[in-house]
């Protein structure tokens, strides 16, 4: 049972309704940043308060909840958020992607393809993709409203002129359903093709008070140039543990002598493959 000091999933019902309205608006206008009144959460900004509020508004007692941080279920951040909802909502939790109905994530999309029965909730630090080149919020809002996105390509141009290629490796900008340019949160660009998904994808930015969404089967295109097409490149190694050749890899130090290896960043995916192979 959940702790009786809290309403189910911590937030009061009125706040959850307010957040759900923002989510519904986000689903209706894919990629559009919907303002919402972010609440104080019992964790600091940068710890996923936006994602936590979105998860709280989506959770039902029947849900099975999974949290990943950089693909792993066992990091401090992931563990504390999972415990938070175990305590305040009493929901079942899992590390298995396929068993989860709601997955909150920081910086990754699971390797296992998601289904129509799942919701992926992203923690977003900076929701505005135009921010770095145009700091004025009034101006960036106008640019979204009028679909003036030339500046986004200026950023990519700068990348190529400086590095010879589009060096943006994380938070790679996308255009959603041919309309809004969106920051997919700091996932590696390797994950960008997975943004076209059967699952509902919700993005919550706590400090910046924005929610946005990519509904199931929405067209999501990574921005690029004709002569420098988008490339979701990956490290040229298979996973040292499971042998997968098509997953996003983390480099890990294995011993004091500086030995290192590349392994799947998605710990559940890697473990499941090893279980299957065994």
């Amino acid at each position: 049972m959940s702790d009786t000091d809290y309403n189910f999933a911590y937030l009061d019902e009125q706040t959850k309704r307010m957040i759900r309205r923002a989510i519904l608006k986000g689903v209706a206008v894919p990629g559009y940043q919907v303002p919402f009144a972010s609440r104080e959460m019992p964790m600091p900004y940068g710890w996923g308060t936006g994602g936590v509020q979105v998860s709280a508004a989506c959770l039902t007692p029947e849900d099975t909840f999974k949290v990943i941080d950089q693909g792993a279920d066992d990091t401090t951040n992931a563990v504390s958020i999972r415990k938070f909802f175990e305590k305040t909502a009493g929901v079942a939790v899992t590390e298995k992607t396929a068993e989860a109905t709601i997955i909150q994530t920081r910086h990754r999309i699971p390797e296992t393809p998601l289904t129509e029965d799942q919701i992926l909730v992203y923690q977003v630090p900076i929701p505005e993709p135009l921010r770095f080149l145009e700091p004025r919020e009034t101006e960036t809002r106008k640019m979204h409203a009028l679909e003036e996105y030339g500046l986004m390509h200026v950023k990519l141009y700068e990348d190529i002129s400086r590095h010879g290629e589009i060096a943006t490796a994380y938070a790679y900008p996308v255009k959603v359903e041919g309309r809004y340019v969106m920051d997919p949160s700091p996932i590696p660009k390797f994950d960008n093709p997975k943004l076209e998904s059967a699952a509902l994808q919700l993005f919550g930015a706590g400090r910046e008070q924005r929610i946005y969404a990519v509904p199931p089967f929405t067209k999501v295109v990574s921005l690029d140039f004709e002569d420098h097409p988008f490339d979701p490149s990956k490290a040229p190694h298979p996973c040292a543990l499971c042998g997968a050749e098509d997953t996003y890899l983390d480099e890990v130090i294995t011993d004091d002598a500086g030995g290192r290896m590349f392994v799947c960043s998605d710990t559940d995916f890697c473990a499941r493959r090893r279980g299957e192979a065994a």
Partner: peptide, 10 residues
């Protein structure tokens, strides 16, 4: 300005 009016060839 070129990119603003749709130029997409670096």
């Amino acid at each position: 300005r070129l990119m603003a009016v749709g130029a997409r060839h670096y």
